[in-house]
Computed example of a mutant assay.
Amino acid sequence: LPHRAATALVTTGPFAWSRNPIYLANGLLLLGLGGLFDNAWFFVAAPVAAFATDSLAIRREERHLAALFGADWVHYSGRTRRWVGRHK
């Protein structure tokens, strides 16, 4: 629930490969719709939406998670990238 404090740090499943799999899926959906409808505006909107999401939501959420989960958050964020992939 977006307006409630987190109660658990989920690090498995899709969260093992992206700290923000839902936001990532939204961006991919925009790109897919751009291809499906052959509309360049979706391709423009995807990075704009990703930047806005990163600036307005993700950074704030990460501060909240760091304060709530401390060392567990540091370990998780050190091995899993914000958007996609794992750190080596």
Rank of each mutant, 00 (worst) to 15 (best):
79 R>C: 08
37 F>M: 08
73 W>A: 08
85 G>A: 12
41 W>F: 12
81 R>M: 07
88 K>H: 13
45 A>P: 02
51 F>P: 02
13 G>F: 09
7 T>I: 06
38 D>T: 13
16 A>P: 06
53 T>N: 09
80 T>C: 15
11 T>S: 05
27 G>W: 09
41 W>I: 08
1 L>C: 02
28 L>H: 06
61 E>M: 04
29 L>Y: 15
80 T>F: 12
84 V>T: 12
63 R>I: 03
33 L>K: 03
45 A>I: 00
31 L>C: 13
73 W>S: 05
66 A>F: 06
70 G>E: 13
69 F>H: 10
11 T>R: 11
72 D>A: 10
28 L>N: 08
87 H>I: 10
53 T>Q: 10
58 I>A: 03
56 L>Y: 10
44 V>L: 08
68 L>I: 13
5 A>V: 05
88 K>A: 14
31 L>S: 06
62 E>G: 02
21 P>V: 12
67 A>F: 11
42 F>P: 00
7 T>C: 01
32 G>F: 10
54 D>T: 10
50 A>P: 00
9 L>R: 05
45 A>T: 03
86 R>A: 01
81 R>T: 12
37 F>Y: 15
42 F>V: 00
47 P>K: 00
50 A>L: 10
86 R>G: 03
1 L>M: 12
24 L>K: 01
25 A>Q: 05
70 G>Q: 09
53 T>R: 00
87 H>E: 13
61 E>P: 01
10 V>E: 15
62 E>K: 05
67 A>R: 15
31 L>G: 12
66 A>R: 15
71 A>C: 05
52 A>L: 15
48 V>M: 02
39 N>V: 00
19 R>H: 09
9 L>P: 06
64 H>Q: 07
66 A>C: 04
51 F>A: 14
83 W>Y: 08
68 L>Q: 15
31 L>A: 09
85 G>F: 06
68 L>P: 00
43 F>H: 14
81 R>Y: 10
22 I>K: 00
42 F>I: 01
52 A>S: 03
19 R>L: 07
28 L>Q: 03
33 L>I: 07
84 V>W: 14
68 L>G: 02
17 W>P: 01
65 L>R: 06
74 V>Y: 01
20 N>P: 07
5 A>M: 08
20 N>I: 10
78 G>Y: 14
32 G>L: 10
27 G>V: 04
31 L>N: 03
16 A>V: 13
34 G>A: 01
6 A>G: 00
58 I>C: 00
29 L>I: 13
3 H>E: 10
75 H>S: 12
49 A>F: 15
39 N>R: 01
25 A>R: 04
36 L>V: 07
28 L>F: 14
25 A>V: 11
66 A>G: 02
84 V>I: 15
55 S>M: 14
9 L>E: 08
24 L>H: 04
35 G>Q: 05
62 E>I: 09
14 P>N: 01
